[in-house]
Design a binder for these strands. Structure first.
Length: 830
RNA sequence: GCCGGGAUGGCGGAACUGGCAGACGCGCCGGACUCAAAAUCCGGUGCCCGCAAGGGCGUGGGGGUUCGACUCCCCCUCCCGGCACCA
């Protein structure tokens, strides 16, 4: 009996992992073979150590999707690679005294081995690694394509600077104004940096989200929308009375233009220095600028929150009414947004209101709230909403929403303004003063300027012999052999760019290269056309605005170049939840870290995968403290025993067991099997793996029950086969072992066809008729599933329980939804 | 403040297009096996009243639509996420 087959995942799992590779079971097929293609991608891991629980969750999900589609007869591309450049490698290298390269490759080897032990169905031949010259050569090529199109440029800009680590930090590395590594207050420092002009694509990034509306979550789309931060309004040009300079402001409320009573410049605005000098306030303004420069980013917010301001002694002339209003410089106006100058409308903007109060400036109401008048003297806050325009010359009486286009038209006719759009999104700062990244392929020539490295000279190899300890400038600058070159254009002496690229550049195109590795190109246009866009992308929500926005941008650039034929790289997106423990993120300091490898060794990869997927919806966090690997293991052991037992009891034409008259156990089992096939398939399509598993648990229970009742023969075997195939996306090793060893198939379960169902068998032949009285369930009657309306009504009214419940009241009406429900409405409730 | 998403037993979560709320599992309780434990197996388990049969209540709160609402509409509370002197 079954006891002779011991379920030992530690034995069967590694054996099948080897067999799958040897048999090439999970290799994608390049040639057309009639099967639809399915590009199943999981955000490639960063090799900062061994595989962690987050990977176990994310890969568990993408594996289930990929394996399911493979069994559905699709040609699945399921690749793996390594996002291998980046700061953690440098930090570890500095800390341990090993080279970043050595540390990175060791981690890759470890992570690969653990992922393999997890049984991942990768096409291992397509592995790529972003720190290989073979790869970053093409990252550099992508940079050059953007450079050639004016989309990569260099400018001086303020950056986050950690005074202790002597390095710039990406925005995402600044937590509450402090360096995420050492906790030092970050300051702003002006540096010349390379940027990608993502702002040119802001509208397309926004508009093309319409294509993703049904396949990406609202959460991610909302995050991207907020990040891009498009706002519509107008640009209005004011003239400085004393100097004749023209200054443009951006406003979303041109309808409030008649309410302007002052004008404010950001401290860094180009015109401020000159006005300050002329107005005799140079020292005050210099002091303010200096203070802001030196303020840590966290404290600058406080300076900005103040309502301090310095009058410049000049006046701005309002184009709509010719009024000259005083100009100020104040830290509450930011140089980074809009034009770095704003018109002050204290009656209708809270910040302007507070500034006017602090500097004793007039407040003029020009929008009347719907409720009626408002006396200036009583105002304790501004009115920032819609209303009717007043004190606004020709537009008096106009509802303010209509006033906006009217004012814009008025301004445009007089050349004093136009409709304009402003974005929160800034250009993507891609240069890093760090060692472990792809060198930016630019040569600085004294006579030719910035010259791209010719394509045939790529890659610009990252030299290995470099002192990469933090010293405030790019480590590559210290390597003279690297720096000094001759200009590719004029041949004169020139110097290489020493910054490296942000790792998000590496990951913005890797999915293209997975489709087919090319020696002489970044990617094969043919293979990309076959596989892209990615059918299903799985990854963490933390990349909602970083990686996912950058990739969308790069693809649009490649589309414009005619290299790809689609505008969105990822058709469907699934953001899996995090793995937490006792409500908190796994962290060493909290002491709640869980490691996957020991768990895999204890319970088996199949049990860990099943645990992850059964815990709840894929998008939700998994709290390891509330799930049970043992529970999953218990179920799988039950599957194991029941399938073996089914095989051993169904070899001959067994007797069909009858437990009670009219209940044929074998026939019931067959119906259950077909119903399960139908329901589980629907759950798989919806990615409701927890629900799919629960239904497979029920099938297991039915099978065990049928075996206990002595049902033999074909139905039992059919149930065992169905169970084996349908657990395959979650427990691939057990499925393979049972499919081949127990059920005796010669080829992989992953080459078998996902079970289909007979619709009439999937329907129950008997249903429970619910009988309600006034909406409350009073009886349940088993009826044949083809029972008609009249019969249902008849049965319901015959019920004794129903009669007791009606209790003599007269029946108002009877609602029948045959064969499932009858609701008897009595006069009382009507 | 603006935008997006949520709230169902002790816990994770089910419930198709408005039709049996709590599937499945965890935990817990009881039992079997065992010298004992682990493992395994069987039974019970929303809350309240009741020996029971049975009854009442119940999907964050309040209203509404409907024969019927976890599901649809309005208002509110709380939680999570994004953006935020963004002009």
């Amino acid at each position: 009996m079954a006891t002779k087959h011991i379920y030992d995942p530690g034995k069967i799992e590694p054996a099948w992992q080897d067999a799958w590779v040897a048999e090439g079971v999970f290799k994608a097929v390049e040639a057309e073979d009639g099967r639809p293609r399915f590009y199943n991608l999981q955000m490639f891991p960063y090799p900062s150590g061994d595989m962690h629980m987050g990977h176990a969750e994310a890969f568990g999900i993408s594996e289930a999707i990929g394996l399911y589609h493979r069994m559905k007869g699709e040609n699945v591309l399921n690749p793996i690679g390594w996002d291998a450049f980046g700061l953690p490698a440098e930090n570890a290298a500095i800390k341990r005294g090993v080279h970043p390269k050595e540390w990175t490759y060791a981690n890759i080897a470890q992570q690969r081995s653990t992922l393999r032990r997890y049984g991942c169905a990768f096409d291992w031949d397509r592995q790529l690694n972003t720190c290989d010259p073979d790869y970053y050569r093409w990252t550099q090529w992508i940079f050059l394509q953007l450079f050639d199109r004016g989309l990569a440029y260099r400018k001086n800009a303020p950056a986050n600077w950690c005074p202790k680590d002597q390095t710039v930090l990406a925005n995402e590395q600044v937590i509450a104004g402090r360096c995420e590594r050492c906790g030092t207050l970050v300051i702003r420092k002006d540096l010349t940096q390379w940027f990608f002009k993502i702002t040119d694509y802001a509208d397309r990034l926004l508009d093309d989200m319409a294509l993703l509306e049904d396949t990406w979550t609202d959460r991610v789309l909302n995050q991207q929308r907020n990040w891009i931060g498009r706002s519509e309004g107008a640009e209005v040009t004011f003239r400085i009375q004393e100097t004749g300079d023209e200054v443009t402001v951006f406003t979303t409320r041109p309808d409030t233009l008649w309410g302007v009573t002052f004008f404010v410049f950001a401290p860094e605005h180009a015109l401020v220095a000159g006005f300050a000098e002329g107005g005799g306030v140079k020292s005050e303004v210099d002091e303010l600028l200096d203070r802001l420069q030196r303020s840590p980013v966290a404290q600058r917010g406080e300076e900005e929150a103040s309502r301090e301001g310095i009058p410049l002694g000049v006046h701005a002339v309002n184009p709509v009414n010719g009024e000259a209003v005083p100009c100020f410089v104040a830290p509450y106006v930011l140089m980074e947004y809009g034009t770095g100058a704003v018109m002050g409308v204290p009656a209708h903007d809270q910040r302007d209101f507070e500034f006017a109060r602090a500097h004793d400036l007039p407040i003029r109401v020009v929008i009347q709230p719907p409720g009626g008048g408002r006396e200036t003297g009583e105002m304790t806050e501004s009115y920032d909403h819609e209303g009717v325009m007043v004190n606004s010359g020709p537009l008096d009486g106009t509802p303010s929403p209509d006033g906006i286009p009217a004012v814009i038209e008025w301004l445009a006719e007089r050349g004093a303004g136009r409709a304009a759009v402003s974005y929160r999104l800034r250009d993507w700062l891609i240069s890093r003063q760090r060692y472990w990244g792809a060198p930016i392929p630019i040569i600085h020539c004294p006579s030719c300027g910035e010259v791209g490295v010719p394509e045939e000279d790529l890659p610009v190899l990252l030299p290995e012999d470099v002192d990469f300890s933090p010293q405030g400038e790019s480590p590559l600058a210290s390597n003279e052999a690297f720096v000094n070159v001759s200009c590719p254009k004029c041949g004169g002496p020139a110097k290489r760019e020493t910054d490296t690229m942000d790792t998000f550049v590496d990951s913005s195109w890797y999915f293209l290269r997975f489709t087919g590795k090319m020696e002489d190109r970044a990617f094969s246009t043919d293979e990309v056309a076959k596989w892209m866009p990615v059918t299903q992308y799985t990854g963490g929500i933390e990349h909602a605005i970083l990686h996912l926005l950058y990739s969308r941008f790069v693809i649009k650039v490649l589309y414009d170049m005619g290299l790809v034929a689609f505008v969105e790289p990822f058709t469907r997106l699934l953001n899996q939840g995090m793995v937490i423990n006792e409500g908190a993120a796994l962290s060493k300091s909290k002491g709640n870290v869980v490691e996957p490898l020991p768990l895999i060794e204890r319970w088996g990869a199949d049990s860990i995968r099943t645990t992850m997927l059964f815990s709840g919806p894929a998008e939700d966090d998994v709290d390891w403290a509330t799930v049970s690997a043992q529970g999953a293991h218990k179920w799988l052991s039950r599957v194991w025993r029941s399938v073996w037992e089914a095989v051993e009891t169904s070899t001959g034409p067994g007797a069909r067991a009858e437990t009670s008259p009219g209940h044929d156990v074998a026939a019931d089992l067959q119906r259950f099997v077909h119903r399960t096939r139908k329901l589980v398939t629907a759950d798989m399509d919806r990615h409701r793996f927890n629900v799919a598993i629960s239904k497979l648990m029920m099938l297991t229970n039915e099978l065990v029950r049928a075996l206990d009742a002595g049902a033999g023969d074909r139905e039992v075997r059919e149930a065992a086969e169905t169970l084996t195939q349908m657990i395959a996306p979650f427990a691939p090793h057990m499925a393979e072992e049972l499919w081949r060893r127990a059920l005796g198939n010669e080829t992989s379960v992953f080459r078998s066809t996902w079970p289909t169902w007979n619709e009439s068998l999937a329907q129950s032949d008997e249903v429970v008729l619910i009988v309600q009285v006034d909406g409350k369930v009073r009886d349940r009657i088993a009826v044949p599933s083809d029972t008609g309306e009249d019969r249902c009504r008849e049965l319901a009214l015959e019920s004794e329980r129903v009669a007791a419940s009606i209790d003599g009241r007269s029946v108002d009406r009877v609602i029948v939804r045959a064969p499932k429900l009858v609701n008897i409405v009595t006069m009382r409730s009507a």
